[in-house]
């Protein structure tokens, strides 16, 4: 499970897909391809993007839902918790006392 997560995050194109899904939840494959082409200058084939999405889905980072005849992709950040559970971040710096 963790292996799938790290493998999924290791690729810059897949990270770009996650960035775009974070910007708007629920995108068709067409919209994801358009955003990669226009926003990241990544002109991949639809098949290429589909394969990246399959890797992200296997890692639990992308969920798909069918709505009637369409298929939408959404970001799921829940698996990222494994990272902070394994290597917890330092405690947040305590806020300085507010001056009256």
């Amino acid at each position: 499970m963790a292996e799938d997560l790290f493998k999924a995050l290791a690729d810059p194109t897949r990270r770009a897909i996650l960035d775009e899904l974070a910007a708007r939840s629920g995108q068709t494959l067409f919209e994801i391809c358009s955003r990669l082409a226009m926003g990241h200058r990544l002109s991949l084939s639809r098949q290429g993007v589909s394969q990246h999405l399959a890797v992200l889905e296997a890692a639990g980072l992308v969920d798909t839902r069918r709505e009637g005849r369409y298929k939408f992709h959404t970001l799921n950040t829940a698996p990222l918790r494994q990272i902070t559970e394994r290597w917890p971040p330092p405690p947040a710096p305590s806020r300085p006392e507010s001056t009256p």
Binding site: Q27, T28, L29, F30, E31, R46, R69, Y70, K71
Partner: peptide, 10 residues
């Protein structure tokens, strides 16, 4: 047509 619609292609 159905294959295009499933992937959101106009």
């Amino acid at each position: 047509r159905d294959a295009l619609v499933a992937d959101g292609v106009p």
